[in-house]
């Protein structure tokens, strides 16, 4: 074996990496791509199943109401703002927004979930009524489970924030939590368009 000589002293490199320099960031991007493919498969199934029915939503099912779901969507979209505020303040070293921002986001997400529960409690069809019911309930249920998971995850992050765990250097946990939050919010837009607008226009 030959001898070795050092061409690089790594001790001078930083011990923290942010955004695309951090492996964790890439890991979350991978998760997001996977989940997006999952939702895309669900949306594709929605349109595929539609071709089996002369009418969509099928006979006997009202086409969806648009006002309340749109309001709920706006609430969900709004929940991303405090999250962004917390994340970007932390980059400048301000830790206070991280203590309250996520709490506002969580509250908005819970409002969204409550609106969904009320809406689907008396929507008039179930997952075992027809294929339309199956796919709509699956999409909404799956997305709501994501929102719920997000709320729980963010609650943990907030707890850590109150215990002063995060700082300017140690913030990758907040960044990836935020990324995931934006994803769950943004992916709702095509889902919302599919199950409300597409259903609404296809029925006419």
């Amino acid at each position: 074996m030959n001898g070795t000589f050092s061409v690089l002293d790594a001790s001078k490199l930083p011990s923290h990496a942010f955004e695309h320099r951090s492996p964790l960031w890439w890991g979350i991007i991978g998760l997001i791509v996977i989940e997006a493919t999952v939702f895309a498969s669900l949306v594709a199934s929605f349109f595929y199943l539609r071709s089996n029915f002369p009418q969509w939503p099928p006979d006997g099912t009202r086409s969806p109401e648009l006002l309340k779901p749109t309001l709920a969507t706006l609430v969900l979209l709004a929940s991303a703002i405090p999250m962004y505020w917390a994340d970007s303040s932390l980059k400048q070293g301000k830790t206070f927004p991280l203590k309250v921002g996520p709490l506002i986001s969580i509250a908005l997400a819970l409002v969204f979930l409550a609106m969904k529960v009320v809406e689907y409690r008396d929507i008039g069809f179930r997952w075992d009524t027809h294929a339309y019911g199956s796919v709509v309930w699956t999409i909404v249920g799956f997305h709501s489970a994501h929102v719920l998971a997000l709320v729980l995850k963010t609650a943990v992050v907030t707890t850590l924030a109150w215990r002063n765990y995060f700082n300017r250097k140690r913030r990758i946990g907040v960044t990836v939590n935020g990324l995931y939050w934006y994803f769950v919010v943004i992916i709702w837009i095509p889902l919302y368009m599919t199950i409300y607008w597409a259903s609404y226009f296809l029925s006419n």
């Binding site: 030959n2 001898g3 050092s6 061409v7 790594a10 001790s11």
Partner: peptide, 10 residues
């Protein structure tokens, strides 16, 4: 080569 270049300091 005579010697292998490496990284130190990890």
């Amino acid at each position: 080569n005579q010697e292998v270049p490496v990284v130190t300091g990890i």
